[in-house]
């Protein structure tokens, strides 16, 4: 059975100029242990898609369509049930780590709380050990001491790793990661990507990876969805997308990738790009 089946997902915002679809008629499929990459330009609806999967789209937005996790339909679920699904079965790493961590609590306490919500009855001692181990897993040096620090005491990349540690500590069936390695240096990025692969292999956790880094997508995912203006313009197996892109937009995206070994010239921005912004 498919782990995640999204059908005809649409997220609509009311605007002064009429309704605007941030996501329109989107279909997604993910097998257990699979990795799906979502790529596309800024403002194309990637983050909105991941929020809508979890029922976390902004209040002003309307979501329609179907989101199934194994055999459970998430659209139309009560808020209480949804909260349980989010704590237990789906974890998410958000794009902006600073604003998704609570500045008033130590990172350790935040990981502990997330874990204890998922495993009621866990003692604080055990939860604390889980928190330290989770930080070690994402290669935070001196984790036993760092666990008592506040988010502002961490660098951007370290905060991102805390978010990943928190998401993985509950062993979710589905992990949605929105630009999880954007703030990381390449060596830590490589470690985190290895870690994600390891978890997929060992626990069958499915991964939805949102990133603008096409090299990362090419290394990690097996299927890719290319989005533009809220719709999927191309989908396929990773090798197919990277060797035989069909849509002009996908081709332009691949042409725009800055290459470390290339001569320095004017970078090719994707032609006909829209200025973006809410309409």
């Amino acid at each position: 059975m498919s782990l995640l089946t999204v059908r005809d997902l649409t997220v609509t915002f009311p605007t002064p100029r009429g309704p605007l679809d941030a996501v329109r008629s989107l279909d997604l499929d993910l097998e257990p242990g699979g990795a799906l990459g979502i790529v596309g330009e800024s403002g194309s609806g990637k983050s909105m898609t991941s929020l809508a999967i979890m029922g976390l789209q902004p209040r002003a937005a309307k979501r329609t369509g179907s989101v199934r996790l194994l055999d459970q339909e998430l659209v139309g679920m009560s808020e209480a049930e949804l909260r349980r699904v989010r704590g237990d079965r789906i974890a998410m790493v958000f794009q902006d780590p600073l604003s998704s961590l609570n500045p008033y609590y130590t990172v350790g306490l935040q990981i502990e709380e997330a874990y204890r919500a998922h495993r009621p009855g866990t003692t604080r001692r055990v939860a604390r050990r889980v928190a330290i181990e989770a930080l070690e897993r994402v290669h935070i040096r001196d984790a036993a001491r760092r666990v008592d620090h506040y988010p502002h005491q961490f660098s951007g990349g370290m905060r991102q790793r805390v978010m990943i540690a928190m998401a993985l500590s509950t062993e979710p069936e589905l992990l949605i990661a929105d630009e999880p390695t954007t703030a990381l240096d390449v060596t830590v990025q490589a470690q985190i990507l290895d870690l994600l692969q390891e978890i997929r292999r060992e626990t069958g956790t499915g991964l939805v990876l949102i990133t603008h880094d096409l090299a990362v997508v090419s290394e990690v995912t097996d299927h890719i969805v290319v989005m533009k203006d809220g719709v999927c313009v191309e989908r396929g197996a990773v090798e197919q997308i990277f060797t035989r892109p069909q849509h002009p937009y996908t081709r332009a995206l691949l042409d725009a990738v800055p290459r470390i070994d290339d001569e320095i010239g004017e970078l090719r921005a994707v032609a006909n790009e829209k200025n973006g912004g809410p309409a």
Binding site: S42, A183, H212, E266, R268
Partner: peptide, 30 residues
Amino acid sequence: ALDVSVQAQVINLLRDLQREEGLTYLFIAH
């Protein structure tokens, strides 16, 4: 945080500003 196409635009923009207005950058990136 920018996708490749916007990133290319912004890098080009930063380079143009440097060329035209002589801007100086301390640029942190991974």
